[in-house]
Design a protein around this nucleic acid. Sequence first.
DNA 1: TCTACACCTTAACGTTACGTCAATGTCAAG
DNA 2: CTTGACATTGACGTAACGTTAAGGTGTAGA
Lengths: 250, 250
Amino acid sequence: MYTIKELADLAGVTTRTLRYYDQQGILPPAEIGLNGYRFYDHSSLLRLQQVLFFRELDVPLKEIRIILDRPDFQLVPTLQSHQEAIQEKARRYQELLGTIQKTISSLQGEENMTEKDYFAGFDETQYEEETRELWGRTSQYQESQRKWTSYSQDQKDEIKKEGERITARMVSETPDTRPDDPDVQRAVGDYYAYLNQYFYTCEVEFLRSLADMWVQDSRFKVNFERIREDGAAFVRDAVHLYCDSHRENS
Amino acid sequence: MYTIKELADLAGVTTRTLRYYDQQGILPPAEIGLNGYRFYDHSSLLRLQQVLFFRELDVPLKEIRIILDRPDFQLVPTLQSHQEAIQEKARRYQELLGTIQKTISSLQGEENMTEKDYFAGFDETQYEEETRELWGRTSQYQESQRKWTSYSQDQKDEIKKEGERITARMVSETPDTRPDDPDVQRAVGDYYAYLNQYFYTCEVEFLRSLADMWVQDSRFKVNFERIREDGAAFVRDAVHLYCDSHRENS
DNA sequence: TCTACACCTTAACGTTACGTCAATGTCAAG
DNA sequence: CTTGACATTGACGTAACGTTAAGGTGTAGA
């Protein structure tokens, strides 16, 4: 058992950070004393280590919570994925070191650089660590990655657009349509087909859990709320209806 | 000449970022058109590159501005210092990779870890990149580093405390004392001696520029404002008076 | 010439992950 | 029995932008 300060000192963070993590549900204490004191144990320590790894990899705390709370979360595979992600970060640093060398040479008139060269290594998005970390290493994610990376950029853009079109139909701009509206239900069906075609072969139950996630995760949520009030909840209801009626009899 | 979007795309940042940097005086455009449009040139590009390097090294924008605006700022030495700092960051990643390996082994019962070992590599302050970058590579900084690192931790703590005691005297808690108060002036003299003993041999003019910095840089400023209202300005005035009366005749 | 449409502007509020008080309660040591 | 180091819950502050709103500008094509 550790007090809050003991754990904080061990991990090199402040007590305020640990209280914040508690408040956000990321790292609840193992026990709370009658005096209200927080007490942590060894599993807290391991969880905090995970939090710090994800934080190091620029994963927002909200996502960290979701990842760590997933029922299929596994420690060792996650640690291995951290390993890859950190190695990727290190490679980015190598590129930055190259940029420094080139810039020095070019300032001394020894080398020519294009404008782009001055900024090689700065853009983190090129190293696409986010998606990889977000989904973890489930087999579903792996399949999606395999399919997805086989497309060209133009194809990817087109697939995304199609997804947006179907999504718009699912949310249905007109405010008086209900989740059981035939057009909406047809759109849900199209989305299910779309998923299977471009991402992962999945059962309708997976679609159901996806829709649940859209409601919980505000990053997805906003996409629906933009189109209609409580759009995410609307879509969730529509998807649930769809899944209910397509359960065994498919 | 680049438009704002052209430069943003080159550097992999958003136009909002460039506008923000303009607003903060970190990267003013080379030219502003009659229509209010911002235009950037090659020197802007080099300056932006510097900003991004410092940002990469977690230097706050306020400090970046101060560093880049220093009259003795030099591009090539700064690039070299970036190189060292980035290598240090890479070393930290190596330690994190070690922590991952150890954690995996210990989870499989192959290795024993102390609690501390679980967090090896997370604490950036151990790598003290900040001070190094803040002061740049002036000779004064180097001397201060040489002196400072030769002390033990206990000595360092004691020296810091003494500095705080003298500082308190310089600011003078009692609200009706003036900057030319004899006690205050004596405290300034003591601080000058303190500086020379523990940090760098310097002339009074250096003390003057230090005091000016205390007013500008809010990180130092708060230390004085805590003690008395407008404490930083008060100390600056006191120091200026002291320096004026100790100019040539020392 | 008109009209898209992609670009530009300022203004202002929102966000994340804490830092930093303030006011108050708790506990082990001398 | 009183320090002093620890703990608690608010609550406001901060950095570095993201985002949206409301509008002005420039040019390519019908």
